[in-house]
Design a protein around this nucleic acid. Structure first.
Lengths: 210, 210
DNA sequence: TGCAGGTTTGACCATTTGGTCAAGGGAACC
DNA sequence: GGTTCCCTTGACCAAATGGTCAAACCTGCA
């Protein structure tokens, strides 16, 4: 009868499947983060992956499927640093650690940052459910933690939501607006990240010290 | 012989030309800021402008020409607030006024902000010359002003370049990442801008007070 | 009112692009 | 060695898209 699985299911079964899906996602990250979803073509991705277009579509049913899988897979990594901000720690150091970890990610994973940026600037058509679900839940939880610290007088009063927005904005800026920053600073490689690190440390430390 | 201008030149000559080029640019701003350059189609713009596609191309020679004219026209408006930051004023109030004006622009002109964001996230292919020219010059000039204030002990020491980046990041975030912010806060209209205003005022005031 | 130039559009075109398909090549297991 | 499923691809397709063109339609002015 009709064979159940024409195309590879969710989990790669064979070595080849594993290798090729990885190659494709890696290539897709490159292309999507550079040109956005609509600006990217299957041919570009196929070429970047060193595969033929029909071969891409053997592993993924469509262009959007590749994009969706990328985003799904990266969402966790992206939220991880915020999850690690724990009520038990020393408040200012917990928040500062979050800031600097986020900055580190902007440096190490600029493609991932731009992938999300592209998506959100255009109204987040494909990830609004995750924003209103997972992300909102996590943020709501962590703003409570921050409120707690404020009540205890351990950090200066702030609007916790807007504090988080400021952290996102300032750190991701170094990945998302990289082209602009480089156009102004003309840094050698990532040399400007050292100053950025010092700057953001100062900014948020002054903001939060009671 | 050959009539010089087949298509309307730089400056609109007739009322109809003026009206239609304006309508087109307005529609194009809407579409480009929402879908990015490659994600936008001439048909979309034409429909939004209430004109036929060939009619669009009677007023502008190509899709990129529309985009270019939009960006050129908006660049000045965009840089204006920074120009207004003067060495003569009271330093903290000058900087704070810039921050709040920028935030105001994020609220009033989110489409313009997203137009630039889309462009820069994707590597600023069409405006790198302006970034390395006009923008860099202006920023270089204003960082000098800030350095002066620091030397005079009138504001706390900061890296002036990264201060400006932080201002851009935090204010434009409310326009560029609007979808995300609304997904988390579910504000009524623009009600969250009041809190944003207070937050950014606090953030930069604490940062800059000596 | 006539007419010269500005304005509008339906029909059309070439290219790009997401996606299909049937047929041919491999790997692994019996 | 053969069979069975997995993998790969050249050729193809329909729709979308940027752009053209000639003909028709307006509009302002002498």
């Amino acid at each position: 009868m009709g064979i159940e699985r024409q195309m590879p299911g969710r989990q790669p079964r064979t070595r080849i499947q594993k290798k090729n899906t990885e190659t494709i996602l890696e290539a897709a990250l490159d292309v999507f983060s550079q040109h956005g979803f609509r600006g990217s073509t299957l041919d570009q991705i196929a070429k970047a992956a060193g595969l033929s277009k029909p071969n891409l579509l053997y592993y993924f049913p469509s262009k959007v499927a590749i994009h969706r899988e990328l985003i799904d897979g990266l969402m966790q990594t992206w939220l991880d640093p915020l999850r690690k901000m724990q009520a038990e720690g020393e408040p200012i150091e917990e928040i500062l650690a979050y800031v600097l970890r986020k900055l580190e990610m902007a440096r190490e994973y600029p493609r991932e940052s731009r992938l999300f940026a592209n998506e959100i600037v255009q109204g987040a058509p494909n990830i609004m459910d995750k924003i209103e679900g997972e992300l909102k839940d996590l943020v709501d939880e962590k703003t409570q933690v921050i409120e707690g610290w404020i009540s205890a007088g351990r950090i200066a009063p702030v609007d916790p939501y807007h504090l988080i927005f400021s952290i996102w904005a300032t750190t991701q800026h170094y990945a998302d607006f990289d082209a602009q920053i480089r156009g102004i600073l003309h840094p050698e490689g990532d040399s400007h990240f050292e100053a950025a690190r010092a700057h953001l440390d100062t900014l948020f430390r002054r903001m939060l010290t009671p």
